[in-house]
Simulated scan of single mutants.
Amino acid sequence: MSNAQNSSQEPRWAGEFLGLPETGAASMASYPRRIGALFIDWFVASGIGMILEPGNQWVVLAVFVVLHFALLWLFGTTLGKRVFRIQVVQLGGAPIKLYQAAIRAGLLGVVIPVIVIDRDSRGLHDKLAGTVEIHM
């Protein structure tokens, strides 16, 4: 089936239209894993934020965004993503670049782009950054 014919249809699996496999390494990371990773990353940021300035959730958010940016740029994964074996890569599989980590982390801090998803189950933050979350 050609891309033109398949473009109006729903994907059979998350990441199909991106050329990702249905299962296994390099397949799209599932929502439960992504949400689990997010909770771990927020927990770590909360701990650091509470040490820096107890009770200030803006500091927690800033720590979360900075950690997300730095760890994604340096390692392609965060602490939570590592636990759930998720990696963030460019479309095509290359490591993400500095500007992609910055776009993704900044939009993640705004929250709304994260809940706007496309038919391949990518959040707007991933779409705008040109990235995708895959299984390691």
Rank of each mutant, 00 (worst) to 15 (best):
residue 127 K to D: 02
residue 23 T to V: 13
residue 42 W to F: 12
residue 47 G to L: 12
residue 129 A to R: 08
residue 59 V to S: 07
residue 96 I to N: 10
residue 107 L to P: 01
residue 49 G to M: 00
residue 84 F to G: 02
residue 59 V to E: 03
residue 72 L to S: 03
residue 48 I to P: 05
residue 126 D to M: 01
residue 95 P to Q: 11
residue 18 L to H: 10
residue 10 E to S: 14
residue 16 E to Q: 13
residue 98 L to K: 15
residue 27 S to Q: 12
residue 123 G to P: 05
residue 96 I to H: 12
residue 92 G to C: 06
residue 99 Y to C: 09
residue 71 L to N: 06
residue 95 P to A: 15
residue 76 G to K: 07
residue 85 R to V: 11
residue 85 R to W: 12
residue 134 I to H: 03
residue 58 W to N: 12
residue 84 F to V: 03
residue 73 W to V: 00
residue 39 F to D: 04
residue 116 V to W: 14
residue 67 L to S: 11
residue 100 Q to V: 00
residue 59 V to N: 04
residue 7 S to A: 13
residue 9 Q to R: 09
residue 30 S to H: 08
residue 21 P to R: 07
residue 39 F to C: 05
residue 112 I to C: 01
residue 65 V to E: 03
residue 78 T to C: 06
residue 65 V to K: 01
residue 85 R to Y: 07
residue 23 T to G: 11
residue 115 I to K: 06
residue 35 I to Y: 09
residue 22 E to Q: 11
residue 128 L to I: 05
residue 54 P to A: 11
residue 91 L to W: 13
residue 64 F to Q: 00
residue 65 V to C: 08
residue 129 A to E: 09
residue 2 S to C: 07
residue 58 W to P: 02
residue 1 M to F: 12
residue 123 G to F: 05
residue 80 G to V: 01
residue 88 V to C: 06
residue 79 L to M: 05
residue 13 W to I: 08
residue 55 G to N: 04
residue 84 F to L: 08
residue 115 I to G: 07
residue 134 I to K: 07
residue 40 I to D: 09
